[in-house]
C-alpha cells in the first residue's frame, strides 16, 4: 500500500464551472423518465384506437394552423381543456406545464411585433401554439408509444420503418441509461477544476458512439439468429368500440365548427 493511501486526504477543493454535466444529466433524466413511464400506462383512459388518435391529432394541428378565426382557436382550446379532464392529475400537470412554457416562449418571441402595431400575431399564434402543443402532448401522454408508432402504419408507412422507430425508442433508453451513468461517474470524479472539459465531454459522447456501434452489431447477430432477413410485418387488431365512435363524432363536430366559423 502506498503511503498516501493510508492517510486521509487533506484536500480543499476549488470551485469549477461545470454545470454542463448537471444540465446534461437533467435532460437525459427527462427523456428516460418519459420512456420509463410507458410501462405504467393503463389503457382504460381515452381508450380510443391509436390510429384514430394520431390521425385526428394531425387533423387538429392542420385545422389550427390554417384557421383565421379567433373563435375557432378558442373553441379548440376549450375542447382540449375539457378532454384533458379525462387524464390523471400528474399527467395533466406535465402536459399543461409544457403547454404554458411553450406558449409563454411564443408570447415573448412575438412581443416585439406588438410594438410595430401587429396585434394579430400575438393574439392568434400564442393560443394556436398552446392548443397544438397540448394536443400533441395529450396524444403522447395518453397512448403507448409502440401504439403510436404502429398507428403510423395505417398511413402507408412501410413496416420496416416502424420497426426502426421502435428500435430507436428502445436504444434511446439503453444508450441513454449508459450515458447517464457515464455522466454520473464523470460528476463523481470531478472533484476539482477540470482543465479540459471538452475532452471529458467527448469521452462520454464518443464512448456512447462506440457503444452504439457495438450494440448495433450485437443486435444484428441476435436478429440473424432468430431468422430475420429484412422482412418485417406488424400485425394490428382492428376493433371498433363505442369510444372510437364518440371520438369520430367529436371530430366531425370540430370539422363542422371549423367550416362554419371559417366561411365568413
Amino acid at each position: 500500500m502506498p503511503e498516501w493511501l493510508l492517510k486521509d486526504e487533506n484536500y480543499v477543493p476549488q470551485g469549477d464551472k461545470d454545470t454542463f454535466i448537471n444540465k446534461s444529466i437533467l435532460s437525459l433524466l427527462g427523456v428516460l423518465s418519459r420512456i420509463r413511464a410507458q410501462g405504467g400506462y393503463k389503457t382504460d383512459r381515452l381508450a380510443v384506437n391509436p390510429t384514430l388518435k394520431v390521425g385526428f391529432t394531425v387533423l387538429l394541428v392542420v385545422l389550427l394552423s390554417i384557421s383565421r378565426s379567433f373563435a375557432f382557436v378558442i373553441f379548440i382550446n376549450v375542447y382540449l381543456l375539457a378532454a384533458l379532464c379525462l387524464l390523471k392529475g400528474e399527467e395533466i400537470l406535465k402536459i399543461l406545464k409544457t403547454s404554458f412554457a411553450v406558449a409563454a416562449f411564443t408570447f415573448i418571441i412575438l412581443l416585439p411585433s406588438v410594438f410595430w402595431g401587429n396585434y394579430y400575431s400575438i393574439c392568434m399564434i400564442t393560443p394556436k401554439v398552446f392548443a397544438t402543443v397540448t394536443a400533441v402532448n395529450m396524444l403522447s401522454h395518453s397512448t403507448k408509444w409502440n401504439a403510436i408508432t404502429g398507428a403510423v402504419k395505417s398511413f402507408f408507412v412501410p413496416d420496416i420503418f416502424i420497426l426502426v422507430l421502435d428500435i430507436t425508442i428502445k436504444y434511446i433508453f439503453l444508450l441513454g441509461e449508459f450515458s447517464l451513468n457515464m455522466l454520473y461517474s464523470l460528476k463523481l470524479r470531478s472533484v476539482g477544476k477540470n482543465g479540459d472539459k471538452y475532452t471529458s465531454l467527448s469521452g462520454v459522447a464518443g464512448t456512447m458512439f462506440i457503444k452504439s456501434k457495438e450494440m448495433a452489431e450485437d443486435m444484428y447477430s441476435a436478429m440473424e439468429c432468430r431468422g430475420f432477413t429484412g422482412e418485417y410485418r406488424r400485425y394490428q387488431k382492428i376493433k371498433f368500440t363505442f369510444a372510437d365512435f364518440l371520438y369520430i363524432m367529436i371530430h366531425m363536430a370540430i370539422i363542422f365548427v371549423f367550416i362554419y366559423l371559417e366561411r365568413a
Binding site: 486526504e9 477543493p13 457515464m182 463523481l188 472533484v191 464512448t207
Partner: peptide, 25 residues
Amino acid sequence: TKFSKLFHQKIGFVFQNSEVQLFCP
C-alpha cells in the same frame, strides 16, 4: 460546487458496469 466536490472526493463509487466509468482516451 465546493461542498459537493469535497464530498465526492471523500467517497468513491465503483459502478456495477465499469464501462460507464471510463471516458478518457
